Amino acid sequence: MSPPTIAVTMGDAAGVGPEVVVRALAEPEVSASASCVVIGDAGRLARAAELCGLELRIEPITDPAQATGEPGVVAVIDLGLVPADLPFGELSETAGEGAYRYVAEAAELALAGRVQAICTAPLNKAALHAAGHAYPGHTELLAELCGVPEVSMMLSTGQVRVIHVTTHVGLLDAIERIDAGLVERTVRRGHRTMVDSGIAEPRIAVCGINPHAGENGLFGRGEEEAKIEPALAACRADGIDAQGPLPADTVFFRAGRGDFDLVVAMYHDQGHGPVKILGLEAGVNITVGLPVIRTSVDHGTAFDIAGTGTAEAGSMIEALRQAANLATRP
């Protein structure tokens, strides 16, 4: 099987996206596993390569089929949206518009079957909003571009995988939004993704909402009984090994030692916090429920170090590796 073609979005041009992209694409293991096409800006990528001390040839192309996958060559579909003097590390409406357009182009290519996966560098939500695109992040943006009403965010590290019932909403809104139907759909999406990735009978741990998962009604207002337990009963009836609701303060330890293949978190920080303690360089964000494969770095635009050539590319390398693996599975 020939290596898949992956559309790599450059992210916010004022952030570390251009730097982590060129660092990752300079790695032999990346060029060996996939033919990568950056959707972004050729000049910005050349500047990033210079900042990182990399000898790369930035090659503008117009079609993903023109990418050769040759080591040391970065193929880029240049949308021409970034002024040469755009400063690093500053919020920019121009960069926000570029980040949106890169994702939109990648989604169009993926839906048309011209690339087999999308891998995204970080965008800045405030810049995205300043450009008039009011999405909480990549996950919701891609769902709309792909015409999908509901998707889930999964974070994957070498030790733990976490899928979220809710993500970019406030905590009170998250608790209100959670219901048995949403929990059940999230568990099923997570189960299907694990099976598709080669785990035939995944063991799934489902977090409670309240401390100690409510401790038999002592904490909260019956959220576990009303919002989670009916969902798990429905999943188990179909043979899904979904355990819970379990206390979130111990479930990640248990998952880390190998008791579970996947943890279902109820809200953003419940899942993100433990994963990020394990290290941003190891985390990968996967959007579950799209008609296309999408992976991403698990960090932001890091304006404080953007333009210094010091950004680490470990998360981008891992995101590209997982995108290539998913794209080559039946």
Rank of each mutant, 00 (worst) to 15 (best):
Q66C: 13
V73R: 01
L86D: 08
I58H: 04
S92E: 03
L91N: 12
D85W: 00
L91G: 15
G72P: 08
F88Q: 11
L91Q: 15
V74W: 02
V73G: 09
A65E: 14
V82L: 12
V76C: 11
L56R: 07
G72I: 04
G89T: 04
L79A: 08
D63S: 15
R57D: 15
I77P: 04
L86Y: 03
F88I: 06
L79Q: 12
I58W: 10
A75V: 00
L86G: 11
E70K: 14
G72L: 06
L86H: 05
L79Y: 05
Q66P: 05
L79S: 05
R57V: 15
G72Y: 01
A67L: 05
E93C: 12
L79C: 09
A75M: 06
L81P: 03
P71H: 02
A75E: 11
G89L: 11
L81E: 15
T62M: 07
D63I: 07
P83M: 05
P71E: 07
V74T: 03
I61L: 09
T62G: 15
E90W: 08
I58Q: 13
P83N: 10
Q66A: 15
I58M: 12
P87V: 09
L79W: 00
G72N: 10
G80Q: 01
P60H: 01
F88Y: 15
L81M: 13
V73E: 08
E70P: 03
L91I: 14
L86S: 08
